Amino acid sequence: MSKPQDGTYYIINRVESPIGERLCLTFTGENQRPTVTAKSDSEAQRARWQITTFSDGNTQSIVPVANTGLECAWGPGVVVVSSAGLHVWAIRSSDSGYTIKDGSETQVWGLNLANVGSEIAIGNDAELERQRWTFHAA
Rank of each mutant, 00 (worst) to 15 (best):
Q5A: 10
Q5W: 07
G7W: 08
G7E: 05
Y9M: 14
I11A: 07
I12E: 07
R14A: 13
V15A: 05
V15Q: 11
E16F: 04
E16L: 01
S17A: 09
I19T: 09
E21Y: 12
E21S: 11
E21V: 10
R22K: 08
T26K: 07
T26H: 06
F27M: 11
T28D: 11
E30G: 11
E30N: 14
P34D: 07
T35Y: 10
V36C: 07
A38T: 11
K39C: 01
S40F: 12
S40L: 09
S42L: 08
E43W: 14
Q45P: 01
Q45H: 06
R46C: 10
A47W: 05
Q50W: 11
Q50D: 14
Q50I: 15
I51K: 03
T53R: 06
T53I: 07
T53D: 02
T53P: 05
F54S: 12
S55P: 03
D56Y: 13
D56T: 13
G57S: 12
G57F: 08
T59D: 02
T59S: 10
Q60E: 11
S61F: 05
V63W: 13
V63S: 11
N67Y: 09
T68V: 13
L70C: 08
E71R: 08
C72N: 02
C72H: 00
W74R: 13
G75F: 05
G75K: 07
G77N: 15
G77C: 15
V80S: 05
V80W: 10
V81Q: 12
S82D: 15
A84R: 14
V88D: 13
A90H: 03
R92S: 01
S93L: 00
S93D: 04
S93C: 01
D95W: 00
S96K: 14
Y98P: 00
K101I: 01
K101N: 06
K101D: 01
T106K: 01
T106F: 08
T106H: 00
V108C: 00
W109I: 00
G110L: 04
L113N: 02
L113C: 02
L113G: 01
L113T: 03
A114H: 03
A114N: 05
G117I: 04
I120A: 12
A121F: 08
A121Y: 06
I122P: 06
I122T: 13
I122E: 05
N124Q: 10
N124S: 09
D125Y: 03
A126C: 13
E127P: 01
L128K: 10
L128Y: 04
E129V: 02
E129I: 01
E129Y: 04
R130Q: 05
R130S: 02
